[in-house]
């Protein structure tokens, strides 16, 4: 059993070596739905599901929120309590703090665990770039954008990206399980005498 845990830890290390580092290094100033200025690492120390959207989106963005909620619901309670959710607008012109607050309330998103944020246009491009999200403004004021949900670990490194919409992606849940497991494993290894 111990060996297995060790192997799991090793695996986690290997994966980390492959990732490009923490996306929290993007120096963007976010304003959340309460108007509080934040940085990208608003949820540092937690696993985070992050995605980008725009408030007036008729189709995929409501679905994106549904997807995040479904994922949250499908996660075991111990993981759910750690999980945080971050939605960043690609439409800073129309998605004002007031609009974001209204959206959060209408969708009943718990503001202690869900952040709806806006930032400046240049930062939108950089955040989209680190998340691999493509978007383009349309002549009618709407946006084309790819719908990708990214799982960040406690340090802001990308652990998994899913384009499954409308339901919890089992692979994403597995990844979430994996990045919350080692913490428990470490506790167990560190405190053998407790048992």
């Amino acid at each position: 059993m111990k060996r297995l845990l060790f192997a799991l830890l090793l695996l986690a290390t290997v994966v980390r070596a492959d990732t490009a580092g923490s996306i929290y290094q993007v120096a963007a100033a976010l304003a959340d739905q309460s108007g509080v200025l934040r940085r990208m690492d608003v949820y540092q120390g937690h696993p985070v599901l992050v995605t980008m959207f725009y408030g007036s989106c008729p189709m995929a963005c409501p679905l994106l929120i549904d997807t995040l909620r479904a994922t949250e619901r499908a996660a075991p309670a111990s993981e759910r309590s750690q999980l945080r959710l971050l939605l960043i607008s690609i439409d800073p012109e129309r998605d004002t703090v007031a609009n974001l607050k209204a959206l959060g309330e209408s969708r009943k998103l718990d503001p202690t665990r869900w952040t709806l944020a806006r930032t400046d246009a240049a930062s939108v491009r950089k955040i989209a770039a680190v998340l691999g999200i493509q978007y383009r403004k349309l002549p009618d004021g709407g946006y084309n954008h790819s719908s990708i949900v990214t799982l960040l670990d406690a340090n802001g490194e990308i652990q998994y990206q899913s384009s499954v919409l409308g339901k919890a992606d089992p692979e994403l849940l597995t990844a979430l399980d994996r990045i919350t497991q080692p913490a428990r494993a470490q506790r167990q290894v560190a405190e053998p005498s407790v048992r």
Partner: peptide
């Protein structure tokens, strides 16, 4: 750029993947 990685696909949007 929002072009498909396989540009031979010429059809229109998949609204489930993209807004707009």
């Amino acid at each position: 750029m929002l072009v498909s990685s396989d540009n031979r696909e010429q059809s229109s949007a998949d609204v489930m993947r993209f807004c707009g």
